[in-house]
Amino acid sequence: MSKPPSPILDLSHTGLLIAAHGSPSTKGGRTSSRKHAETIRNLGLFADVRAGFLTEKPFIKDVLDGIHLPEVYVVPNLAYRGFVSTTKLPQALNLTGEVTERITPNGHQRVHLCDPVGTDPSTAKTFAVRILSTMDSLKVPDTDTAIVVIGHGSGRGRESFEHTNRIARDLSRFGIIPPVFTTFLEEPPFIKNWRDLTRAKNVIFAPYLISDGFHGSEEVPRDIGFNTKSEIFIERLSHVQPNEMNQDGQRLIYLPPLGDAPEMAELIINRVRASLT
């Protein structure tokens, strides 16, 4: 993201809070939300840009209370619209709807709750570009190759399942030729059973996860068969680079979670602009 998109409205007197779930077991400086906040802050589009979390410091309520501006936009850095974005996050921030009027020690403040970043129409294209770039750089052919998309899944509702499958289906619209399979962490088909879906010679694992926390850096790659304690694995993941290995005659390639992609910063800005239309 080398330059700011052409502004639709002047946001230079407003604040932006990137609200993420967080992971107490992940080093804060490595989180994608902090990276995107820094990227957007450097663009100068907003008067104040911060990241906050539900489960780790700085907590989103404390961050919001520290933004002393009359207008603040909250963008959930989440993959889909579900329980966290519609219930847990608004409750943590004491929000009453899409727009909340409140009185702070510094005066009146209007807080806008935007849709999660994963709902942006450009998400599938951004995902496809990342996969295609990896296939090109690692010389992975279209034939005898499979793409395995990994979503979170949930026993609480069908939002994650349906949204992840929709993103996976849309990949073919943006140049993905190999077959695409969808797996999940918390509901079938489980990622640990991925061999039940494909025996392709080349398998690219693409986590549709917005956070770079425990799921994307340890749980998912471990279920696939990667050694997540390897220094090389950790280093490549921290530099947003794919890891690969050969196992039982198959070439396995693991991409960093989608939320790590630098392009996601622009999608966060898009969610703010979408709330204005």
Rank of each mutant, 00 (worst) to 15 (best):
V129E: 15
G22S: 02
E263M: 08
I269M: 02
A265W: 04
T86A: 12
I191S: 10
G107R: 12
L45I: 15
I191H: 06
S133V: 04
S275R: 07
V129H: 12
K125C: 06
L43R: 02
A146V: 13
I150G: 01
P121Y: 06
F233W: 12
N193M: 07
P256Y: 11
R199E: 13
F205N: 08
V72R: 01
C114K: 01
T55G: 00
Q109R: 14
A51S: 15
R102V: 05
P7Q: 09
F161N: 03
E235W: 10
R110G: 00
L171K: 08
A20P: 02
R251T: 14
E71K: 14
I210T: 13
A206V: 08
D170L: 07
G22Q: 02
D223H: 13
V84Q: 05
T277M: 05
K192L: 07
S211N: 14
G213S: 13
V49P: 00
L64K: 02
V72F: 04
K61P: 02
T143V: 11
E56G: 03
D260V: 15
A19E: 03
P221I: 08
R41K: 15
I232D: 14
F214G: 01
T86L: 13
P188C: 08
P189W: 13
T145P: 05
E56S: 07
P178N: 13
G28V: 12
C114W: 01
G82Y: 11
I103L: 09
I232R: 12
E218D: 15
I191V: 15
E219R: 14
G259P: 02
T39V: 13
S217G: 13
F233K: 08
S172G: 04
P4A: 10
E266Y: 09
N106P: 00
N270L: 00
N246W: 14
G15T: 05
R195M: 06
Q91T: 12
R173E: 14
H215E: 15
R50F: 00
K61M: 10
P70T: 09
R41G: 11
L11T: 03
V129M: 10
K125F: 05
S172W: 02
G216R: 11
R169E: 15
P221C: 08
D136A: 14
V140M: 06
V84P: 00
V240A: 12
P5T: 03
L237W: 14
I18D: 00
I60A: 15
P105V: 12
P90C: 07
F181T: 10
A200P: 05
L54Y: 10
G175T: 11
F205W: 11
V111Q: 12
L132W: 08
L16A: 01
G29D: 09
Q109P: 06
